[in-house]
Design a protein around this nucleic acid. Sequence first.
DNA 1: CAAATTTTTGACCGATTGGACAAACGTTAG
DNA 2: CTAACGTTTGTCCAATCGGTCAAAAATTTG
Lengths: 211, 211
Amino acid sequence: MTTSTDAPRRTRIQQEKRELILEAALEVFSTNGFRGSTIDQIAEAAGMSKPNLLYYFRRKEDIHETLMQRLLDTWLAPLRELDDIGDPLTELRSYIRRKLEMARDFPRESRLFANEILQGAPRIMPLLAGELKTLVDEKAAVIKGWMRAGKIARTDPWHLIFSIWATTQHYADFDVQVRAVLGPNRGGDGRFEDAARFLEQLFLDGLKPKG
Amino acid sequence: MTTSTDAPRRTRIQQEKRELILEAALEVFSTNGFRGSTIDQIAEAAGMSKPNLLYYFRRKEDIHETLMQRLLDTWLAPLRELDDIGDPLTELRSYIRRKLEMARDFPRESRLFANEILQGAPRIMPLLAGELKTLVDEKAAVIKGWMRAGKIARTDPWHLIFSIWATTQHYADFDVQVRAVLGPNRGGDGRFEDAARFLEQLFLDGLKPKG
DNA sequence: CAAATTTTTGACCGATTGGACAAACGTTAG
DNA sequence: CTAACGTTTGTCCAATCGGTCAAAAATTTG
């Protein structure tokens, strides 16, 4: 077999236009959800006509699917990097920092993912129970090792990972609320540094007074 | 004034049917979002015809609005209860527990709210910047008082509140993911008690080893 | 009871939706 | 140049959407 079925073999124009569509679709899907978004909206955001868009992606679902596939890879990268070498507390701290940076730099991806999960993850359920669970179980084992070695306090590794996801992604998914509550002064660009400082303290020392 | 304009004065049937519709709409809206939900779906879930439903709520938006108004009251109740009297750490711990119980007992309400915020809070933005911000600022002041008194560690009260919201609501909004990752054994009914134990330790002591 | 009122329904409407299609247009290799 | 191929568009379609309306059915009121 010289050319199998997997490599779509695309034109230069096809590559460019598909990229353009995916970028536009990320914007539209992440703010309106899948069912709330229309092909027309995506086409307009991508600067082309609806039939033209449908020339590159046959169905609306295909765009969403491609988007979700790419998303998961980059989204889980920080967790994959969580490694056994190096100081556990430092390792966890930098994982939190990286996740917070992703919430700051890729809020649309975070919202797209949140939208999918909120609606019961109809399109990525197998991935959650498969690839994701495997990865988390693996890293939970690493964390458990740290606990046994007395490097960090004993607690539930899975819920620890959940809490890191929850607190960091909150700044992307609930950004509107965060900014509204903080107000124009504290809700400016500095809010991510404030969040980073707070989360570091929370995860390392908790709230009990030092004395 | 005996009867002013504000009390709609409803029939017994009207009250019952409106309640039925709101219950059905909560189910549908929370899983499909506003634009992703259709009046037909809600009507069917409520066991009535579409025109019949529209007899009780003129527009789809009216249902959603009524739902959101009710939601916010009950949703912020735990924070309102956060009080200056009593031990600060106990007070915070019970606030976390109450929020977690709400995520367990009212996940649909949580998802409805999350859906609204995710899409930029188009319908409740004034409430966020008004009522909500006022309440949070007020409670942040209380927490700041505790810090000044040395009762809890010094940190950012606003981000502390955010982190409590994020971690607890995560178990409602991302329930599918949580259950998928924990698997059939650990993802059963006990997951909320595990979460409660973990969160208590996280917020009180952090991750540094006791040694 | 009967009249008045409230509730329910079937039929219908214009707008929007995802998508199909053939024809027109552009590009490129020989 | 020209034939082949890749790209773009206008037009169209069936399905679904939120919502209307008049009339039937059920209920309440006197």
